[in-house]
């Protein structure tokens, strides 16, 4: 996904002279083609994220489209106040890109995990939170973010995520994409955990449960129309994410449910990261297993929830 980001930003930069790429001293060589193709529009801002975000806001207020790139915790919580005031309050259309979503960098330890970013950023007025599930959604979302009049947070994985969309769908920020049709169960996921979610749907199908799968690439604004349809039509809606259970996709859906006048038909099931810092390191797959974010565990939880609902 990281390489696709570099490719796509290079392509878009050649077309759109407003695009400026700001890096927090990462991505050595990754952006060489951008630097060649867009002279003067790549800035290594050093290991100084608060300044980088303020600089981006200043540029955006001048009509440029700055894209800020570094590792997810450093482009979000490290400079949160600059995002809140300089970008959101000033309505400066900065594109904030965080690489290493969720547990992507599990081997680097909790300093480099990013399991709170969706929760924190989506509370900011005017912010859009976009978590592509695969390279296809990333390419489409990047273009949509450039066309959007407001700040957008793009939550990337790392490298090597598989392509999940066989054909390029039409993508609009705030509109979920149906990946599979189904019946009593719907698996809603955001971000790169989607590959595992599709496998969970396969396992459910083997057990005779046809699960619908939805990519909620945009957590904010939430696709409320799609949610209304799913909660009226299904028995179990599972929100699945590589993010803390607190305030992520599942949390956003729970908030939406709590504001509805009548109880929904479906029950909400949350599959997410527990509220802890893991004190062991390992691969991303290992970390996902630690929090039950594997196809097997997800399918099991969905079957249990469905049995309880019946």
């Amino acid at each position: 996904m990281r390489n696709v980001f570099a490719e796509e930003i290079t392509r878009l930069g050649a077309i759109d002279q407003r695009l400026v790429l700001l890096s927090g001293d990462i991505g050595n060589r990754l952006f060489d083609r951008f630097k060649d193709g867009c002279p003067g529009r790549f800035l290594n801002c050093g290991i100084a994220e608060a300044n980088m975000m303020g600089v981006a806001a200043g540029m955006a207020l001048e009509g440029l489209r700055p894209v800020v790139y570094t590792i997810a915790p450093f482009t979000t919580t490290r400079c949160l106040e600059q995002i809140r005031v300089d970008a959101c309050y000033n309505h400066a259309p900065v594109i904030i890109v965080g690489t290493g979503a969720g547990l992507s960098y599990a081997e680097l330890g909790p300093t480099h995990h990013s399991c709170e970013d969706i929760a924190i950023l989506r509370t900011l007025p005017g912010m859009t939170v976009f978590c592509p599930c695969d390279p296809v959604e990333l390419r489409l979302g990047l273009k949509a973010a450039l066309d959007h009049d407001g700040p957008v947070y793009i939550r990337l994985g790392k490298k090597g995520e598989p392509t999940l969309h066989a054909r390029a769908p039409s993508l609009r920020l705030g509109e979920a994409i149906t990946l599979r049709d189904g019946g009593e169960v719907c698996l809603i996921a955001t971000g790169t955990l989607m590959a595992e979610v599709l496998r969970a749907a396969d396992l459910l199908a083997e057990a005779g449960v046809k699960a619908r799968v939805e990519s909620f690439h945009t957590v904010k604004p939430l696709d409320e129309a799609r949610l209304a349809e799913l909660f009226a039509g299904c028995q179990v809606v599972a929100a699945i994410e590589e993010h803390s259970r607190i305030g992520g996709l599942g949390g956003a859906i729970a908030e939406w449910l709590a504001a509805r006048p009548a109880p929904p038909r479906a029950r909400l099931l949350s599959c997410a990261v527990d509220d802890v810092f893991p004190h062991q390191v390992g691969s991303q797959d290992w970390a996902r297993r630690l929090f039950g974010l594997t196809a097997e565990t997800i399918a099991g939880k969905v079957r249990d929830a469905l049995a309880a609902a019946r």
Partner: peptide
């Protein structure tokens, strides 16, 4: 631009100067 929280104006100004 809005200011009020301290330490924000110079980075924004730097962005404007770069622009």
């Amino acid at each position: 631009a809005a200011t009020g929280s301290l330490g924000h104006g110079l980075p924004i100004g730097l962005g404007m100067a770069l622009a």
